[in-house]
């Protein structure tokens, strides 16, 4: 009995505890990201943003959540019930499972798998299913159009994201996320975002905007043409799950940016006051910074037209990132900097 306890119960409890420790803060951040978005854009547009519910509007996300929670879930009569209900669940779950491999600090990671970056890439490439299922199952033209746009967009930008990841892998020699971070140790100037991979940093960030359907690539939900795109038929909690999933994905993409290009949990300078701050805090700060840029972009740029979006993805980013893969490989070979197999 004690053996059973040791082999099965204790590890399971640890895992569940770890999962909760990740999921709860993520969901909280999602809630406050929505508030931050409205506040930040408000300031940029010389408004105040939400400021009525609670001090500085701090309780606004809670109020919004409660409202959605108590509303009625409406299923359109022509909808395919099972898939209609499955779609938000898929989106939501996928946006959470990806966090399993994210290293928050040295050794602070739920599952330190060998192919972490591939896992992230795989999960993010699945995000399209929630959307396409929602669009199809709604049995509505607007939703379907939104879903098709979104699917085409995500598939297109995934290709260049893949190549960007390859350039990073070339420089690291491992697919393990912790090793990718450690390869950038030694201060800011070692971060990949400020090395010869800098253009890939830009490509990755812009592709991340497209991948998460954010402005200026938010055509799938272009409210002027498609009312709200794929989730137009959703209400109450089903809608809330889409919403949560989408914002959790934004945070995840910011986390990926931080890990791949901004040195993950490492401090920007390797001396006294900076090294006192614990790794997870640096990581959170970097994510917050990237998220701020997400919002900043939204407040600044007009929406792309669809053909321009596709042109950017296929005719600019794809050749550029492909070229950079060759350049990086050549660079590493020429200066004898090829990392050993399996990373440092």
């Amino acid at each position: 009995m004690a053996e059973f306890f040791d082999i099965y119960v204790v590890p399971t409890a640890w895992i569940v505890g770890g999962v909760l420790l990740i999921v709860v803060p993520v969901l909280l951040s999602v809630a406050y990201l929505t508030l931050a978005e409205r506040k930040v854009i408000g300031w940029m547009q010389l408004r105040k943003g939400p400021n009525v519910v609670g001090p500085f509007g701090l309780l606004q996300p809670i109020a919004d959540g409660l409202k959605l929670f108590f509303k009625e879930t409406i299923i359109p009569s022509g909808a395919n019930r099972v898939i209609f209900l499955l779609a938000p669940v898929v989106t939501f779950v996928l946006s959470l499972v990806a966090w399993a491999v994210i290293p928050f600090g040295a050794g602070i990671v739920l599952a330190d798998v060998n192919v972490g970056i591939l896992y992230l890439f795989a999960i993010s490439s699945l995000g399209v299913y929630g959307i396409i299922m929602a669009g199809w199952a709604s049995n509505s033209k607007y939703a379907f159009l939104g879903a098709l746009r979104s699917a085409a967009q995500m598939v297109s930008y995934e290709v260049s994201i893949g190549f960007v990841i390859i350039t990073v892998l070339l420089a690291v020699g491992s697919l393990n996320l912790s090793k990718i971070v450690l390869a950038q140790a030694g201060g800011m100037h070692h971060w990949f975002g400020f090395s010869m991979l800098m253009p890939m940093f830009a490509v990755f960030f812009i592709s991340a905007l497209a991948e998460t359907n954010r402005a200026p690539f938010d055509l799938p939900e272009a409210e002027a043409e498609l009312v709200s795109g794929y989730n137009v038929e959703y209400s109450a909690m089903t809608f809330a799950m889409f919403f949560l999933g989408e914002y959790a994905n934004m945070i995840l993409m910011s986390g990926m940016t931080a890990i791949l290009f901004l040195g993950g949990w490492l401090p920007p300078l390797e001396f006294a006051p900076f090294t006192w701050v614990p790794g997870p805090v640096w990581f959170a700060l970097k994510i917050a910074f990237v998220l701020f840029v997400f919002l900043w972009v939204r407040a600044t740029f007009p929406r792309y037209r669809y053909d321009q979006l596709m042109r950017l993805g296929w005719k600019v980013f794809l050749p550029l990132s492909l070229l950079w893969v060759v350049l990086t490989a050549g660079w590493l070979l020429a200066f004898d900097m090829v990392p050993p197999a399996g990373g440092l």
Binding site: V113, V115, L118, Y119, F121, A122, S125, A151, E158, G162
Partner: peptide, 17 residues
């Protein structure tokens, strides 16, 4: 594990879409 991830990325993420 590599094959597993590639299966998901290629088949699920691209072909099946």
């Amino acid at each position: 594990e590599f094959l597993a991830m590639i299966l998901v990325v290629v088949y699920v993420g691209a072909v099946a879409v």
